[in-house]
Amino acid sequence: MNTINSEFLGYPIFKGQLVDVLQKGKTIINTLNQYSFCLAEEDKVFKNALMNSDILLPDGISIVLSAKFLSGNELKKIAGADLHEFVLKYLNSVYGTCFYLGSKQETLDAIKSKVEDVFPNITSEGFSPPFRDEFSQEENDMMIEKINEFSPDVLFVGMTAPKQEKWVYANRDKIQATYICSIGAVFDFYSGTVERPSNFWVSHGLEWFVRLVKEPKRLWRRYFFYGGIYLKHIVSSKINHSIRF
């Protein structure tokens, strides 16, 4: 196990700083929150993709608090948006390149415009794939071709979990990019399509609450239904650990 990883309910969760993310060689970076954890426990392919991440970030206050509760491990929440901002600053310093795969074309256009304005040393491109649960072989080949023609330093994938992580894991050997980051909702946050909660809410671990208030119909199941399932996992793990010792 990587020395900057910590075991969390069987997952190799990242416990380092963002500066430690930039490792040598092809690096697959995913995130874990209570929702993706619950989905992965029901989806073996998704779980395999997460377990085989080179870096699995603790993206959620529930993961941070649970790690402390279960084993005393001190984790720092690192959201996909934090990773994205850090990587862009790095790329700007080295005149790097990045490619955005996912979302609507209008969103990609807004991202490209913002990157050009804020990080003028970065060259970026993007591709909006068809919106469907599964891609045909032809569509899949086209996506990989678009990425590899550009051959970016960093590939950002925003197709929502678990679709994005499973796609990356299935195609990682075909993708010509040094860092591959599955960051989901960050595409909407960065483009301005969806406003991310302010730093006040983020720093107090209440980003999820603001998002729920703004989009209750879409997010209630994620936070309440799966929140209950997640809590059962945590309590069960704590009880089993206590029995063993």
Rank of each mutant, 00 (worst) to 15 (best):
H84N: 11
L56E: 14
E116G: 15
G205L: 11
K44E: 15
L57K: 01
T31Q: 05
N148T: 06
P152T: 04
T160V: 04
S236H: 07
M143A: 13
I229N: 14
I180G: 03
G72I: 09
K104I: 11
K15T: 12
G72E: 11
V115D: 03
L101A: 08
I175T: 10
Y179G: 11
P152W: 01
S36D: 10
G16A: 06
N2R: 02
I4Y: 06
G192H: 01
N92S: 05
V168F: 09
D133F: 07
Y100R: 00
D188H: 02
Y190K: 01
A185R: 01
F224G: 08
L83R: 01
I111N: 02
G96Y: 02
F8P: 04
V115E: 15
E106P: 03
A177E: 12
V157D: 08
M1I: 10
K76H: 13
S66M: 08
F99K: 00
I175L: 08
A67T: 12
V94K: 00
M1D: 13
V168I: 14
P216I: 10
N199R: 04
D173W: 01
G205I: 10
R132I: 14
V154L: 03
P130C: 08
E7R: 00
E138C: 05
S236L: 09
D54G: 06
E42A: 06
M159C: 04
A79I: 04
S128W: 11
I234T: 09
L18W: 02
E125D: 15
A110F: 07
T97G: 00
E134C: 12
S124R: 02
F8M: 02
K26S: 12
S198G: 08
E215D: 15
C181F: 09
I243N: 10
I243P: 07
N52T: 09
M142G: 06
P197M: 07
T107P: 10
E195R: 00
D133V: 03
A40D: 01
K104D: 15
H241W: 09
A67N: 13
T31H: 02
N2Q: 05
N52F: 09
H233Y: 15
A110H: 08
E41T: 05
P129R: 02
N121H: 13
N199A: 13
K174A: 14
R172C: 08
W220Y: 13
A67M: 02
L231P: 10
